[in-house]
Nucleic acid binder design. Structure first.
Lengths: 193, 193
DNA sequence: CGATGCTGACTGAATTTTCAGTCAATGGCC
DNA sequence: GGCCATTGACTGAAAATTCAGTCAGCATCG
C-alpha cells in the first residue's frame, strides 16, 4: 500500500478540520497532500470515496487514543477514567482537534443526510453506554436508568461545549472546567438517590 | 423596507432548515422566495451577506418567541420561566424546528467561517446571561460567577441535545426530560454553596 | 393637467468562477 | 515489455455574480 495513500488521508483530515466536510475541495486536498488531483481519483474513485475512507481513517485514529492507555501506567481510578473519557474530545492537540472537528461536521451533516444517521446513532449509543458504565463503577448503588440518563446529559454537554470551543466562542480550559463541574454535579446527584 | 426583503429571509430560513447552510443554492433560494436571483444581490450584496442577515433575522425571531409572553397570562414563576427559556429550542413546532435547525447549521458553519463567529458569540452570550439572570431570581444567594457557570452548562447541554434531536438520535420528549433534570441538578447545586 | 426627469425595486440573460472528474502520456521497476 | 503510481492539461456542468435594462411611482415645473 503506497504510503501516499495514507498521506492523502492525513491531509484530508487536516483539510476537513480547516474547511469542513462540505468545504473540502479536491484540488485543495491534492495541494495539501502534495500530489496531483488525478492521483486522488486513482486511489479513491471519487470525492465521496475520499470522504468515506477518510472518515474511517479518523475513526480508527480516535479508537487509538480512546482505547490506547499508556502501556504500563498505573491503573486509573474510575473517577479519573470517567473524566478522561469525557474530556477526550476537548484537548489542545492537533490531532484531537482535527478528529473533534470532523466528528462535529459529521454530526451536523447527519441532519441532512439520513444515511449517516445510523452510524452516528450507533457511535453515540456506544459512547453513552461507556460513560454510564464508568459512572456505575463509581456509584454502584445507582439504578441503571439513572446512570444512563446521567451519561446522556454528560455526553450531550460535551458535544455542545465542543462545538462552542471549535467555533472559538469558548476557551478550551473553560470548557474543560465546565465538564468537570458537571461530573461533580451528576455524581452528587446519583449519590443522593 | 420592501416586504420582499423579509420574505427572502424567511425563505432562506426555510431553505437552510431543509438543505443546510452549505447546501443553500442562491437559485433555489430565489425560487423559494419567488423572486429573481438578481434581487438577492440587490438587497444583500452577496451570498455571505444573505447568510449574515438571515442569521440576524433568525436571531430576532427567536428573541420574539423567547420574550413574547402570552399577553395577559398569569405572570410565571421564575422557575417556570427558566424552564421555558431553556426548552424553547426543543419544541414540536414547525417554526421552532426550522429555527433550531437553522441555528444549528449556523453554529456549525461558524467553525469554518470566522465572519459568522462574532454574531454567534454575541447571541450565545446574551442567551447565557438571560439564563443566569433567571437562575439568580431563583437562587438570590448564589454568586454571579456561579450563576454564569451554571447557565453555561445548561445552555451548552441544550445545544448538544438539540443537535441529537434534530439528527433523529434522541426523541424530543426525552431531550426535554434530560434538560429539566439538569435544571434540578444545577439548582440543587447552587443552593448548596 | 401633463410632460419630464428621476429613483428604487426588480428581472432575464449573460459572464465569470469554481469544481469534480477524465485521459493520454511518462517514468520507474520487476 | 508490462505494470503500477503519477501527472499535466483538459472538459463540462453547476454555481455565483454582474449587466443592461424595464417599470411603477412620484416629485417638479410650465
Amino acid at each position: 500500500m503506497s504510503d501516499r495513500k495514507t498521506a492523502i488521508m492525513e491531509a484530508a483530515a487536516r483539510v476537513i478540520a480547516r474547511r469542513g466536510v462540505r468545504g473540502l475541495r479536491v484540488e485543495e486536498l491534492a495541494a495539501e497532500a502534495g500530489v496531483s488531483t488525478a492521483l486522488l481519483y486513482y486511489h479513491f474513485k471519487d470525492r465521496a470515496g475520499i470522504l468515506r475512507r477518510t472518515l474511517e481513517f479518523i475513526n480508527d485514529r480516535a479508537a487509538d487514543y480512546t482505547t490506547g492507555r499508556d502501556p504500563d501506567a498505573a491503573p486509573l481510578e474510575p473517577r479519573q477514567e470517567l473524566e478522561q473519557a469525557l474530556l477526550l474530545e476537548l484537548q489542545d492537540d492537533e490531532m484531537v482537534r482535527e478528529n473533534s472537528t470532523a466528528w462535529g461536521e459529521l454530526r451536523a451533516s447527519a441532519i441532512f443526510e439520513p444515511h449517516l444517521q445510523e452510524d452516528l446513532a450507533r457511535a453515540t449509543l456506544i459512547w453513552v453506554q461507556e460513560i454510564a458504565a464508568l459512572l456505575g463503577r463509581i456509584c454502584p448503588m445507582a439504578t441503571a436508568s439513572g446512570l444512563t440518563v446521567a451519561a446522556e446529559r454528560l455526553t450531550g454537554l460535551v458535544e455542545g461545549l465542543s462545538m462552542r470551543w471549535l467555533s472559538g466562542i469558548l476557551p478550551l480550559e473553560h470548557a474543560r472546567e465546565l465538564v468537570l463541574d458537571a461530573v461533580d454535579a451528576e455524581l452528587e446527584r446519583l449519590g443522593h438517590r
